[in-house]
Amino acid sequence: MLELRLVQGSLLKKVLEATKDLVTDANFDCSATGFSLQAMDSSHVALVALLLRSEGFEHYRCDRNISMGMNLNNMSKMLKCAGNDDIITIKGDDGSDTVTFMFESPNQDKISDFEMKLMDIDSEHLGIPEAEYHAIVKMPSSEFQRICKDLSSIGDTVVISVTKEGVKFSTRGDIGTANIVCRQNKTVDKPEEATIIEMNEPVSLTFALRYLNSFTKATPLSESVTVSLSSELPVVVEYKIADMGYIRFYLAPKIEDEDEEMKS
């Protein structure tokens, strides 16, 4: 038996908007601690990890760990039927191959039930080790979204370099090049608008803008985004979800192909 009541139903809607472009099918894992998802995109380049802690739900009941395979597009279709202020309740029965989304309007005058079929998904669960990152950049999520969008009109890849000066996003395309430098800026009215750079050592990595752009679909979830870079690791783009969890996107960097050089 599973029953999760989320007062801020819009969060779930936004989560789905953020992930469905990257991942089509995924297993949602429910345990006593929370509601989580981990899935790779089809090309195994990016990984999305979602956690909604049980404390964030108004009511959270999960008798035993359960994994529900859902098609995210279908789930998104159903959640679109929920109003932005609706309370969303996710219900599931043991052994059932469906999940029910219940939407209650704020004044309780409308209640809708949507039942969605579950699917069997063979997913590979990856162990993501805790790591020390060389550089952690926290910046306004809308700014990050804007940069990724702008740069993707110039080139396909972005080089993100973090130095003492700030964080530099640069790209190169047929029509020319672009460089955007964001300096550290803590003196703002609202803490969400600050750009904070914690750097242990300079780092410079190349990423496909296509993926970063789909990560920024999560921008509505949070005012600020944290980008963690390490030369040996995938970049982590993290959006906090209210105070109940996070959605993290991992993206493998582009690398020089050593094999190719060997052969040529």
Binding site: S43, H44, H125, L126, G127, P234, E260, E261
Partner: peptide, 30 residues
């Protein structure tokens, strides 16, 4: 990295183009 990596490999990019890394090279399946 399993089957998918093998499948992807033939489509290498030539020259000094950088290659997209695979998330599976970094995280181990559990």
């Amino acid at each position: 990295t399993g089957s998918k990596a093998a499948a992807k490999k033939p489509g290498r990019v030539g020259g000094k183009d950088s290659k997209q890394g695979n998330i599976l090279s970094f995280f181990k399946k559990i």
